[in-house]
Simulated scan of single mutants.
Amino acid sequence: MIETFKNEVKKGLEANPKTLPSKYFYDKKGDALFVEIMNLPEYYLTRSELDIFKNKTQQLIQTFDLKKDTYFELIELGAGDGLKTKELLKKLDSQNFKFDYFPIDISANALHLLKEDLNTAIPNLSVKTQQGDYFEVLDSLKESKKPKVILFLGSNIGNMTDDLASEFIYKLGANLLAGDKLLLGVDLIKSEEIVLPAYNDSKGITAAFNINLLDRINRELKSDFNLNNFKHQPEYDEKDGVAKSFIISTVEQSVEVKTIGKTYHFAKGEKIHTEISRKYNDELIEKIIENTDFSIENKIMDSKGYFADYVLIRN
């Protein structure tokens, strides 16, 4: 894991413009900060999808076309703290559906906390945590040939370019059988007044979450980033529906990363691109899945129309 981290940081800092992978936001401190972010008044995304999972749970279950006497596997990519999914799990458990829940996450800490929480909240639930890469885990699970429902929530697909998102969904299809379902949660295109504060909250929690990536590089790769010399800066273009996050060097400076064995120079005002957060509409989703094995079966939105869970079926 540390070797992969080192190689990806090296590749990103040697790129022009510089980049760092957003997946490395999530260490123990990053996990805790993201839980704080999800509870911020500006961060509408979690509340919007939670609205769907709380108030339209039965509609979700009906759209999955699940049979109570047929076992299935419920697999969540990037499960995190399971806040939204818990609403669905409670309903499935109370209605005596036969299934195992497979939460997949890169963070062992997040999976440990999730399993502990679910063991208390839903004692009868069978939870089989899976740490690692989505496709490696899915490849190991596909041998079962059991019906599958895949959850990919929180608009995590929006962290990819459209081409990568299309490739990602195509690869998901390759690990599934005809009739399997994919619940794809996406943030819908909205005005800058709603979107931008979600990535730049007044308490500075999102800024701390982003800057923690540099702190992690300091700890794990023995570098000397001075965190006071960098700031978080989000940008959003309403026209193309893409929010971007950057870490900005506030002074001209050099940073040594000992594990890599290199020193990197930063100009004052130079940006490190850390994340994109794509927003969607029906046309974009159709375009992304047009060369995959999926088609849209249903679209379920929250009460404000901010967020949508698309139910896709593997053809």
Rank of each mutant, 00 (worst) to 15 (best):
T161W: 00
K18S: 11
A198R: 05
K304D: 08
D117F: 02
F294G: 08
E49R: 07
K28G: 07
L45Y: 07
I289E: 06
L221D: 13
I104C: 09
T274M: 05
N210F: 02
T85H: 00
A208V: 10
Y26C: 04
D237H: 12
E220Q: 14
K279Q: 09
D65E: 13
V137M: 01
V195L: 09
R314A: 12
Q253K: 02
A243G: 01
N315A: 04
P147G: 08
A174L: 10
I52R: 05
K11P: 04
E42W: 12
G80P: 14
K203I: 08
E192R: 12
F99R: 03
N39C: 03
N212P: 08
T259N: 09
R314D: 06
N210P: 09
E167C: 11
L196W: 00
Y71A: 06
K68Q: 11
S107R: 09
F72M: 04
K244Q: 14
P197G: 09
S249K: 02
N16T: 15
K231W: 04
P234Y: 05
K18T: 11
N7M: 07
G12I: 07
F53C: 02
T4E: 09
R314T: 01
L125A: 13
A308F: 05
A174M: 08
K171C: 02
K11M: 14
Q59R: 10
A174F: 00
T120M: 06
L33P: 02
